[in-house]
């Protein structure tokens, strides 16, 4: 038996598209209010992601001890890279798997299914609005980091690169969001979905380029990660920001990012479809 979301009443005056638009507007307004209320907690979570800043310290220390540069990066390059990494990590924080695990286990998902909008949009709205609450303190902290960074640190060469970074980091967020949704849908079958997401996080510290720029890893690791989503979430967006990615590769990177979003999105949707049947079947 499938649990069906009841059909919405036929709109009389409003057209279908304006109805959808209104639903999303309400959803985003509600979540923005919610997230603004939790701004203190968001700032704590922002400060928790210290790893890139710690790595910045270590690599600058290493470059200084090595006579100013290490593997083609001087102190200013490391500073720009790791401040960028920090920003990229902040923009791709995703907790949907915890939310789905909780709601499926506790059964609170049921009431969400009755609403005339797919529950995934609610998770999506909470993530997107949170990002807007996070923006101001993130940029304030980047200001501080830039002020403390070695002289001559160029975070981004020009506005174009910054705008392209915004595009690329949005795609990176979508890769991370759809991937995490896949783990989330596994909560229909297993209690280990959050542990899987933690496994992702442990791998991502190294393979996405948070621990060190990927150039510093052995050749074989560099080659293999190209076939995984990891560098497309942190490493490439940061290279676009700092202007290290050659323009000739820009379209290829953005295109592959879209492909990852598409692949994970389709898989997540399919898993949701068969999972939700099982959820109905256990009577939650």
């Amino acid at each position: 038996m499938t649990l069906q979301t009841p059909l919405e009443p036929k709109p009389d005056k409003m057209s279908r598209s304006s109805l959808i638009w209104r639903k999303f507007k309400v959803l985003f307004q509600v979540w923005l209010a919610h997230m603004t209320a939790y701004r203190g907690e968001i700032i704590i979570w922002m400060l928790v992601g210290m790893v890139p800043l710690i790595m910045m310290g270590v690599w600058i220390g290493k470059a200084q001890a090595n006579g100013g540069s290490q593997g083609g990066f001087d102190s200013a390059d490391f500073a720009a890279y790791f401040i960028g990494t920090w920003l990229a990590n902040q923009m791709t924080v995703v907790w949907i798997v915890w939310e789905m695990d909780f709601q499926i286990r506790q059964g609170t998902l049921s009431s969400k299914l009755l609403r005339p909008i797919h529950p995934i949009w609610e998770f999506f709205a909470s993530h997107v609005t949170e990002r807007f609450v996070r923006f101001p303190p993130v940029f304030a902290l980047i200001g501080v980091a830039w002020w403390l960074a070695p002289k001559g640190t160029v975070l981004t060469p020009d506005l174009t690169h910054f705008l392209l970074f915004l595009l690329s980091i949005t795609l990176a967020f979508l890769i991370r969001f759809t991937l995490s949704s896949i783990f989330g849908t596994l909560s229909f079958w297993t209690e280990s979905s959050t542990a899987l997401d933690e496994l992702y996080y442990v791998l991502a510290i190294f393979l996405s380029g948070t621990f060190a720029p990927l150039e510093f890893f052995p050749k074989v690791v560099q080659d293999v990660v190209q076939y995984t989503p990891f560098p497309y979430i942190i490493s490439y967006p940061v290279q676009i920001l700092t202007g290290k990615l050659p323009d000739s590769r820009l379209l290829e990177v953005l295109g592959l990012q879209c492909l990852w979003v598409l692949a994970f999105g389709v898989l997540a949707a399919w898993l949701w479809k068969i999972g939700i049947k099982k959820y109905g079947a256990v009577g939650a």
Binding site: I44, V48, G49
Partner: peptide, 12 residues
């Protein structure tokens, strides 16, 4: 979540 703050620094 304040404990998470300590974890953040602890990585160093």
């Amino acid at each position: 979540n304040i404990i998470e703050l300590f974890w953040g620094f602890f990585r160093a």
